[in-house]
Design a protein around this nucleic acid. Structure first.
Lengths: 257, 257
DNA sequence: AATGGTATAGTGGTCTTACCAATTTCACAA
DNA sequence: TTGTGAAATTGGTAAGACCACTATACCATT
């Protein structure tokens, strides 16, 4: 019998959720002022601290603007931001969906990097390739921050910080539970060695400023990862199914692979 | 004489900043436990509420994990997340840099949308085109949420939520002060009409499932916007220079156009 | 009439104290 | 050795108070 794993109720989250919903629905218009903290606390039947914490959470998310001595105001872009937030959280983006996106975005970035990379940037990329190799020989099993760093450095070589941000956001998507499970089952020496080879090839193309080669190699790299992941998928899915059955209700993982 | 516009000190931000720095520098390792709230408060010479607010801010940013009755723990991916956070905030990404990125990313997304769009998704895109036209005739001056919605809907038609997220993140970058100034000076009927025409053309290509045409039209659309922006740039830069001279110290806008 | 000062009420920021609920620890008993 | 339960620790919330800042209206001066 699958038990419903419940999460502790934290008032500040419920409050933040309510206010965010009101902003998303337009009930709270941009630039409008929220009730005072004391008012909100009284109306919600709670004390001030949780209300303040909720408002700070919304402030960090960029939904509201706190002006000392004046009040809390809804930001212009709050409504659309609330949407971004939901895309990120509501349904975890599966590994295949993510890899498809990365194949498109990162191959394009690699081409751009080959076009614009400076000597220093190429050197920085080479360092990460070296770091991954050394890491592998000793304790290859860790969560390889160097792998991410390689792709981020490539993006930096494009000279466009928006593209760097794209790369970081894509990699941040790997934090979900399913992705973590993959990390466990999907790290063997053989796979790592081939990835390292791919990285070196990409670095070579960037070094020669051959943008189409860089794009193709990056695409090939990610296609290969996808292929190997789909091969290993049955094993992973099995272990994931167990965890999945334990999660129910609101917490159910709505994962589209 | 340029005056330094001062911002109110908010203890919770200073605390959060300190802890985030310790995480980024590795001083606080992943999975390690932070001192208790009471300890932190005492060591920092403040009371508990500001400490809690700082921790909640870090929690919202995904840097730490709060476990009731146990303690506050540094998340695995905290270090790299801190980097993403910095890319986003440290230096505002300028309009030309952003447009360059959008040209690459969104044209690719448009191609993908043309490939995979369903009838419903095409209809949804058509609705936004219509909405923009109606909006223009009445009060064209507002911040056109429909424009953003058009591009988001196109991304949704790609069938890949990671690409939707990319689009949203790119548009969220337009919140900075400089971008806001642009909105003011860069909205004329003529420009709007041409954008609407572009949108209709893109919609047409997607409808025909002509992916290369969709990509080309999207690229053309953004290239045109960039061209017209660079034409209007002197006026905008002038008004921006005034505001810039008022911002000093930590708040200086490090804008790379 | 315009300007600058001032009083006052409202608001967010912080502090203090206290208690609750969940977790963890650990000594003690079976 | 293995449970078991009480105590200590930790985060969550409540209540009340005070401070600093903002906004507004009013008053005095120019």
């Amino acid at each position: 019998m699958p038990l419903t794993l419940l999460e502790p109720r934290r008032i500040y989250r419920e409050i933040a959720e309510q206010i965010a919903a009101m902003i998303a629905s337009g009930e709270l218009a941009p630039n409008s002022r929220l009730p005072s903290e004391r008012d909100l606390a009284q109306r919600l039947g709670v004390s001030r601290p949780p209300v303040r914490e909720a408002l700070i959470a919304l402030e960090v998310e960029g939904l509201v603007d706190v002006r000392i001595g004046s009040g809390v105001y809804v930001r212009q872009e709050a409504a659309s931001r609330a949407t971004t937030r939901r895309t990120r959280k509501v349904a975890e983006i599966g590994p295949f969906e993510l890899l498809a996106a990365r194949r498109m975005v990162e191959s394009m970035i690699a081409a751009e990097a080959a076009k614009n990379a400076t000597r220093e940037q190429i050197k920085a990329i080479a360092e990460t390739v070296e770091a991954i190799r050394n890491e592998d020989e000793q304790h290859y099993d860790l969560r390889h921050p160097a792998d991410r760093l390689f792709h981020v450095r490539v993006a930096e070589a494009s000279g466009n910080r928006a593209l760097v941000l794209m790369t970081n956001v894509l990699w941040d998507l790997r934090d979900g539970s399913l992705h973590r499970r993959i990390e466990e089952h999907f790290s063997t020496h053989a796979l790592r060695d081939r990835s390292n080879q791919d990285h070196e090839d990409i670095l070579g193309a960037i070094r020669k400023h051959d943008s189409s080669a860089a794009a193709n190699l990056m695409r090939k790299h990610l296609t290969r990862v996808e292929r190997e992941l789909s091969r290993a998928w049955p094993t992973i899915a099995e272990s994931a199914a167990v965890a999945k059955s334990a999660a129910t209700g609101k917490r159910r993982a709505r994962i589209k692979i």
